[in-house]
Each structure stands twice: as C-alpha cells, then as structure tokens.
C-alpha cells in the first residue's frame, strides 16, 4: 500500500473525498456503436468540470460500447472514469477478469450495480446471469484489493487491482424503511462511496438521510446524492409515472410545465424548458449541500453532457480541487 500514500486506490475521486471536498461526479453514456470519437467528445465536455465520470455499463439493458473500452478513452482524454459493472451480463469469472483488465488499463474507480432487467432493453430474449448480486460484487472487489484474493479465495500473485469501490442506492425504492439498512449493508460489504438514484423529492430524501445518519452509515461511506437536469415536462412526467422506484413530486412537473407557458416558438419553448431544468438542478445541489451526511453530488445529465459545466458554474462548484 505504501506506493499509494495511504490511499486505497489513489484515484482522484478518492483523494477529493478524503480531503473533505464536496465531490462531483457525472455520467458519460457510451455510444451504441464503435466510434471512440463520441466518447472523446463527451469526455472533452466534462474534463476539468467534475472529479470523475461514471461510464455506464449497457445502461437500461441496451447494448453500448463497453464501460472499460469507453473508460479507457475517457482516461486517455484526461477524464477520470468510474467503471460501472452490472451483475446482469457476467458471472464471477467474467467480472474478475474484466476487473483485472480494467485496472491494468488505468481504471481506479468502480461502481457495482445489479443492472436493469434485460426485458427493458433491446435484447429482451437474452439470458441474464445474476451469479452474484451487487453487494457480493462490492465484497468481491474489496477482496481483490484488501486481501489480494479472488472470490474463490485463491491468492493473487503479482499486482492486485486496487479500486475505489462504489455502490448505488435508491432512497425511494421500497421498502422505504429497509433502505437505510440496505445502505448500511453496502457499507459493511466495504463500499467506499455511494451514488444515489436521481432525487427530486428532497423532503423524503432528508427523511432517508436522517435515518442513515442515525445509523452512523454516513461515517462509513461517502454518499453522493444523485441529481440531474430535466429537459422537458414530458421527461418529468415519464419519470414520475413510468419509472419504477422514481419519485418526482407534482410540483417539479408543474414547474417544468409552467416554464413553457405562453411561448409559441418551439425552439424558444425547448430552451425555456431546459433553462428551468438547469435551475431546478442547481437548486437541488444547493439543498443537497445542506443535508448532513452528503459528501457530494452525482450529476446524471443523460445525453446532455453540455449541461454539466453550466450546472457546475452556477452551483459555484468551480474550479475543481486538485488534491
């Protein structure tokens, strides 16, 4: 561990959090093709504005460039990646070999996920794996790092991968009362950081965080609150009505709807919606900063990476620390 100066992984994200800064991560969705230029362009937009960016892993069960492949391009473009890994597409052999390969290619952060069910995506006929679950994946990655052993218990001879290990939690998933305990289980599994599902219902999130703080879980793991700019009232309604486990209050939907009132020109209307979405997002970030136990935010601007620098500027989160 000596060459890491006491850090678990030495990643920028780890250093920022350890130094006590309010951390910011964003999301970079790889393309549905083999064009590395798309990743380079998106990385160029985010570079310097966030501490690290999650590279999604076949998100919503739709085939995209791999998280490792796109992550390497982001890394080479000067943006620190958070490699995402779901339990849907690989068994423990595939996962560990990708962890070894990803580390060798420069990955230092990982987010461990169950993965959206494949019936949502573009290959609903496929077989899913779920050999291990996301909690067990956290344990496995921590084992590679802290015990230098594979999941089977076999010792890793030579360099072992030392990731800064993340997990997700949906504060609005049910059963609501169980969620803080499940977060505690993720901390117990050895997670270093947590990124939450998108938050729009702040009072309910406060209630969740109060329980998390009462359990002392916020002292065991850095919690990054998930926020994101809405593009249209339709997107807000869709998330409110159609996405399981999402909680978008009516007042947010109403604000988005009101933003376009009286504007005839379609382009101007779209711009007004986006502006309101950005405004809500910045307000959410300010509210998150006030909540005890929150160590940063994770900005999910899906297919709208350009929004991130604007949000960061307006939220007063620039320049980013260089720990």
């Amino acid at each position: 561990m000596s060459e890491l100066n006491g850090y678990k992984s030495g990643s920028n994200l780890e250093k920022v959090l350890r130094a006590g800064h309010f951390a910011v991560t964003a999301e970079l969705g790889p393309p549905k093709n083999a064009d590395g230029e798309v990743v380079r362009k998106k990385a160029g937009i985010l570079k310097g504005f966030v501490d690290a960016a999650n590279i999604t892993d076949n998100q919503t069960a739709i085939v995209r460039m791999s998280s490792i492949g796109a992550g390497v391009i982001a890394f080479q473009s000067g943006l620190e990646p958070v490699m995402q890994m779901t339990c849907r597409d690989r068994n423990r052999l595939g996962m560990q070999s990708d962890l070894l390969g990803g580390y060798a290619l420069g990955m230092r952060n990982i987010l461990c996920l169950s993965g959206d069910h494949q019936t949502f995506g573009n290959h609903p006929q496929s077989k899913n794996v779920h050999d291990i679950d996301s909690l067990q994946l956290v344990q496995m990655v921590v084992g590679l790092r802290d015990k230098a052993s594979l999941q089977c218990g076999e010792e890793i001879k030579g360099l072992n991968p030392r990731f800064f290990v993340g997990a997700a939690e949906n504060p609005f998933g049910d059963p609501f009362d169980w969620r803080p305990y499940r977060l505690g289980k993720k901390a117990k599994a050895g997670a270093d950081f947590i990124q939450t599902q998108l938050i729009y219902n702040v009072p309910r999130f406060r209630e969740f965080m109060k329980r998390v703080v009462d359990l002392g879980v916020h002292k065991q793991v850095y919690i990054l609150a998930g926020v994101g700019p809405l593009k249209t009232p339709g997107a807000a309604r869709y998330m409110r009505d159609q996405v399981p486990g999402m909680d978008v209050p009516d007042e947010i939907v109403a604000r988005m709807e009101a933003a376009g009132k009286g504007i005839e020109d379609r382009k101007q209307k779209a711009a007004a919606f986006k502006e309101e979405g950005l405004r809500i997002c910045v307000e959410l970030i300010q509210q998150m900063r006030e909540i005890e136990g929150i160590a940063g935010v994770h900005i999910m601007a899906i297919e709208w990476e350009e929004a991130v620098p604007i949000i960061m500027e307006r939220a007063g989160l620039l320049p980013r620390p260089v720990p």
Binding site: H117, A168, P175
Partner: peptide
C-alpha cells in the same frame, strides 16, 4: 427477477417488481 440474495434492488416499487 434478478435472483438477489441481498435484495431488494432499486426497482422495487409499491410491492411490485420493476420487470
């Protein structure tokens, strides 16, 4: 639906599965 041993996942909503 995901054979989780440490569930539920984030898609559990009002007692129903995300699937």
């Amino acid at each position: 639906s995901k054979q989780l041993l440490n569930g539920p996942c984030g898609g559990s909503s009002k007692g129903k599965c995300e699937v």
